[in-house]
Write a protein that binds this DNA or RNA. Structure first.
Lengths: 169, 169
DNA sequence: TAAGATTGACTCTTCAATCTTC
DNA sequence: GAAGATTGAAGAGTCAATCTTA
């Protein structure tokens, strides 16, 4: 299934209807929102990985690169990266392993904490991050199919949900 | 990082600000929406897998079970499952393998197409699906932290985005 | 004891290649 | 040749256990 076929109806709206029929009307909208988020993540992750592949990146590693490029010295403790991205420490170790093997990042010991390590963006890493942002903006973040005012409204609702879910305060 | 720490600010709003500063103001909101969806998926997937684990299920396999339980005969071609869930055929094969090993599903040959196979829900599968829905409704789909009218509004916007992204017509 | 990082085992995902049947 | 399904390889995520240092 290289090109996922476009369905003629919305399977999630159908599931929501089923939820109401089977005795869970109060949970139907929550189910529909959660399932919609799962589906959209699959769609956008696939797009991101497609445009990043020629650069030797994945979306996970791209996020690490961007986090470092936005930091003051291009340097962050590994734990801080996991905290910001809300992923397991093991995932950060894995991502930094790959970035380091590709020469985009180096590991340094943390002068403030002998237990910790720092990830530091190399010059090559900064160039790759810049090139990746270029294609991501052009192919993934632009024109996601909604009017910009609608996109802003959607972001606000998603932020409310993330806050309620504990992503931030 | 067993308990992901709650950040005191919204890292995605901060990234959106950086996007504007670095010359991509038109892509900032698209970036923020896509990144928000990625983060929310991580959060809800973790919750779902936590409540489903005692039942021996994952969210991926739960979705297959629910799709079958909503079908007329509890039976669907594997390809149809992948189409509805928008996942690769290999993922369906994998999920059905596990469900079959656990006795929740059986594979049958498709009388209408010698190449295809059907997944059929067993009585045990139906019981497990029912129990799983019970806990999912109670622990994941209920009380996601927004007023129900807001949830409905969010679903509409997500549906618009899914439609634009090609999830359905 | 607790915290940061790493490793290993496991699951799910995709892609590419293959087998069978249309 | 095209389509449905399977297999194997690779990436990323989790959790549990471990090692080192605070």
């Amino acid at each position: 299934m290289a090109e996922p076929r476009r369905l003629r109806f919305d399977p999630i709206a159908e599931a929501e209807r089923q939820w109401g029929l089977h005795g869970w009307p109060d949970q139907a909208s929550g189910m529909a929102v959660v399932t919609s988020i799962m589906r959209l993540q699959q769609i956008f992750l696939a797009r991101a990985d497609t445009v990043l592949r020629p650069l030797g990146l994945t979306f996970a590693r791209y996020e690490v690169l961007m986090l470092l490029s936005f930091s003051r010295q291009g340097t962050l403790p590994l734990g801080k990266i996991g905290e910001r991205l809300q992923v397991n420490a093991a995932s950060v170790t894995n991502a930094v392993d790959r970035l380091e093997a590709d020469g985009l990042v180096t590991r340094q010991s943390n002068p403030d904490d002998g237990r910790g390590r720092l990830a530091h963006l190399t010059a090559a890493g900064r160039r790759t991050a810049s090139a990746a942002t270029e294609v991501m903006n052009e192919k993934v973040f632009t024109d996601i199919g909604m009017a910009s005012s609608t996109v802003a409204r959607l972001f606000d609702l998603l932020a409310e949900l993330r806050s309620a879910a504990g992503d931030f305060e």
